[in-house]
């Protein structure tokens, strides 16, 4: 089996930045990812990424793609890591498609939307149930929709949808919306939005596609006819496959300030780690640090 210098898992800001550094270090390396851009690709407007006063998430993802192409970086996509472990000096990575071997690895698999875990959610995924208003919102133009969540991302989704949908329901499990007041004011300016506080989604139902949801409020059930259900209740780290590494109570991979994980030679960067603050620019910086740390590790171990 070929032994790479480095394998990078993930194609978001952290993984792509690590890859650019690895290309410039002339390492023999590979990127394994499900997509390019990661969470950045489905961010709305980005106004805090140095050098761009304004760029949309999709445009930034395209810039990442251009940057990868300019260096001719090898990317395996879509491919999902299922296990990573150390065997002697080497790191073994199993994916859903193949097995790989490397001297070092950087895990930069980011976070994914938190599922609601209610009946019908998995069945109607992409058939009415979605986790990305930026991507899928326009498909639901003219249809009644439901947004689950009460934070900023939920309200951002609800506001985008309120502009194109006749009726938007916001279902929030707490007694009041938790988004910033400026977002709540913006939401309240739409007459076609109904907020259901203290409410849970019990089930999502339909036939070939989602047709509605049963809500539960103080023990009372309400049937809401909607064709789209947007789930915006936060994020969880993509760390299920790293069972052999130390993680914290949020399932984030624990790293030190040099991006070392609990296994020497395996580094981690960005939102999948316990790094303080999850931001695109921080993930980029962490990806760069992780690659430099991996390079130093390669030199130290005299490969």
């Amino acid at each position: 089996m070929k032994i790479y210098d480095l394998i990078i898992l993930g194609g978001g800001p952290a993984g792509i930045t690590a890859a650019i550094y690895a290309a410039r270090k002339k390492l023999d390396f590979l990127v394994i990812t499900l997509d390019i851009g990661g969470q950045a690709a489905w961010s709305g407007d980005i106004e805090n990424y140095t050098g761009y006063q304004f760029i949309t998430g999709p445009d930034l993802a395209l810039k990442f793609q251009e940057h990868i192409d300019a260096f001719g970086i090898a990317v395996k996509m879509p491919e999902r890591a299922v296990d990573i472990y150390k065997e002697g000096k080497l790191i073994k990575i199993n994916t859903d498609l193949a097995e790989y071997c490397a001297k070092t690895a950087i895990i930069a698999t980011g976070k994914r939307p938190r599922p609601l875990n209610v009946p019908g959610e998995a069945e109607f995924k992409n058939k009415g149930v979605t986790y990305c208003a930026t991507c899928d919102g326009p498909v639901y133009k003219g249809k009644n929709v439901l947004v689950v969540g009460g934070g900023n991302s939920a309200l951002d989704a609800a506001i985008q949808l309120a502009k194109i949908c006749p009726q938007v329901h916001v279902v929030n499990m707490t007694e009041a919306l938790t988004a910033d007041s400026v977002m709540i004011e913006a939401l309240n300016s739409f007459p076609n939005v109904t907020v259901h506080n203290d409410t849970m989604v019990k089930t999502i139902y339909g036939e070939a596609f989602a047709a509605g949801a049963i809500l539960k409020k103080y023990g009372k059930e309400e049937d809401i006819r909607v064709e789209g259900v947007f789930i915006e209740i936060g994020l969880i780290p993509n760390s299920n496959f790293v069972s052999r590494l130390q993680t914290n109570e949020h399932n984030e991979i624990v790293v030190d300030c040099n991006n070392n994980t609990s296994i020497p030679g395996i580094f981690a960067a960005g939102d999948v780690t316990n790094v303080a603050e999850k931001q695109i620019i921080i993930a980029c910086g962490e990806g760069s640090k992780a690659c430099l740390a991996a390079t130093a590790y390669l030199v130290r171990n005299k490969w």
């Binding site: 390019i36 851009g37 395209l62 930026t134």
Partner: peptide, 26 residues
């Protein structure tokens, strides 16, 4: 759709491969 990043990437990829396609904005 115009807002979906993977749509743009897919279309750019087909263009780079010189494969003509019909684009349907759903």
């Amino acid at each position: 759709t115009q807002t979906c990043p993977y749509c743009h990437m897919a279309k750019d990829y087909l263009k780079a491969k010189n494969m003509p396609f019909v684009d349907v904005d759903v």
